[in-house]
Amino acid sequence: MTKKRKISLSEEDLVHSLRNREKIAIEALYDMYSGSLLGVITRIVIDEAVAEDVLQETFIKIWNSFQSYSTEKGRLFTWMVNIARNMAIDKIRSKDFKNQNKNQELENNVTFIDEQVNTVYKPELMGIKDLVEKLKPEQKVILDLVYFKGYTHVEVAEELDVPLGTVKTRLRMAIIQLRKYFN
């Protein structure tokens, strides 16, 4: 299936055009970040249709509260992914969501979602195996619980019955491995 060309801007240009409320900013924002944000949201809410609703609400919030983002405080994605994660958590804790019996146990294995949804296959990510080998399982599980499932490090310590200090150390070690791999 052919798709329209995706719009991509440098982060600086994107922030600039978002500040100016330009239309192209909306398209670029969606094309550049919808997949990454949906990855986080889907792992929390599980249900694909609900996840897409939350993604839409997330973009609305990003757009409407953009004046509260400041480049001084960090990268655009960091700000957006924290909004997305919070909205996903709010969703699964909301009354109507629970009433719909869609509430999946957070204890679900983190890898569960990757069997459920079609994560896009990207040939350029062939190196993924190297990363998996570098990230020790006990580090990866903690990183994924916090980053993709919205656990706090305190909740992780309780859930896995691991001391708080160990959780923090492993989280840091996991991210150091990511840095070696990506940066």
Partner: peptide, 14 residues
């Protein structure tokens, strides 16, 4: 930067 790249690697296309 590292976490952003990790999220991209775990992206789910809408």
């Amino acid at each position: 930067k590292a976490l952003e790249a990790y999220a991209l690697q775990n992206a789910v296309e809408p």
